[in-house]
């Protein structure tokens, strides 16, 4: 892509994303004392990640079947308390093994 075309795209994209992160981070100087808001913020990371995963993960490979294999591999290993990397690798292997089996069916 020509630099004259690419650069405006890059700057707009990066600028908007940076502002979204940093403006609220700079403005929030006090500790929040309202217990409902505190609770709300404590649940945010888990609800965001869940909403991003379900149902998107089932469309992340060429077949919902292999994607489901990856999903369950991840849930089981995560439930057993494995680390981030181990869980991610098991999800990938679940997909790979399932797609391997599907090629022979």
């Amino acid at each position: 892509m020509k630099i004259s075309v690419f650069l405006p795209y890059l700057l707009v994209m990066a600028g908007v994303t940076y502002a979204i992160r940093v403006i609220p981070f700079l403005l929030m100087r006090k500790k929040i004392s309202n217990k409902y808001i505190i609770a709300f913020l404590e649940y945010i990371p888990y609800t965001v990640l869940t909403a991003m995963t379900i149902p998107a993960i089932f469309y992340a490979t060429s077949s919902p079947v292999s994607a489901a294999a990856g999903f369950f591999a991840a849930v089981i290993t995560a439930y057993k308390g494995k680390s981030l990397v181990v869980v991610a690798v098991c999800a990938c292997l679940g997909v790979g093994i399932c797609e391997g089996i599907m090629m022979f069916i």
Partner: peptide, 18 residues
Amino acid sequence: NMLGVALYGMFIAIVVPK
């Protein structure tokens, strides 16, 4: 395809134990 689920695997690894 395998790499496509790596990111979701990480999300699951954060949510499920909690």
